[in-house]
Amino acid sequence: MASPTRKPRLAVWKFASCDGCQLSLLDCEDELLAVAGALDIAYFMEATRGRIEGRYDLSLVEGSITTAHDAERIREVRRRSRRLVTIGACATAGGIQGLRNFADVAEYAAAVYARPDYIATLATSTPIAEHVPVDFELRGCPISKRQLLEVVSAFLAGRRPVTPAHSVCVECKLRGTVCVMVAHGTACLGPVTHAGCGALCPAYDRGCYGCFGPKETPNPASLSGRLAALGMDGGQLGRVYRSFNANAPEFRQESQRHGRQDEPQDDQG
């Protein structure tokens, strides 16, 4: 436990991201008072404007590194933080903006912006852990509010958070959901995806989209064989692993294995 004389200082930092993950904290309506009671929320762009300089006991970092300025800023955050926890697919894998890693970022910029010369950006979107040491990574796009509270509670108690790295399948089986792939023939990334969402999509009759990124020791090559048997062609296999966690190594390699000769056309479309 932290000393009762001073509450630990919490900061929430934002890099290239949609804000969805840090909004999960504000979304903890019932628990927000308890969070505020346990921690001194010293820096949180979504909730306050006042910037507090100094040092932080726990920094939650959302977003990926896409600019040289941010690559420098994350080092400053690390220097100021006793514990640094990355939250969400952007911070842990590079996010949906990691799609740029498969393409020519100058072409992207020219297609999107009227004055691409105003855009100063890196060629890649990379996870925080590629830039600074990270104490704990919390997966998800967006993260689960329940898991965020667990990580904060674990930090306060000085224990390891309970966020198992097994498959989404385990969560389906725990809640008794009928497997959508076996019983309906629906393509599902659950067998290669990290648990955490509580197996939300299969409970609503959808296949898993892989929002929490690769599970421990994933075997996407074997799963792809099954997805192909369910009717996915090479192009679809290339794309199915390429969403919020496209840049996670096991998903990236598997998507690249499935013939991306058609890549330029896809990028235009």
Binding site: S167, K173, C179, G190, P191, V192, N219, S222, L223
Partner: peptide, 9 residues
Amino acid sequence: AERCLSCAN
């Protein structure tokens, strides 16, 4: 092991 997903189902 080449085929197994270690999914635990």
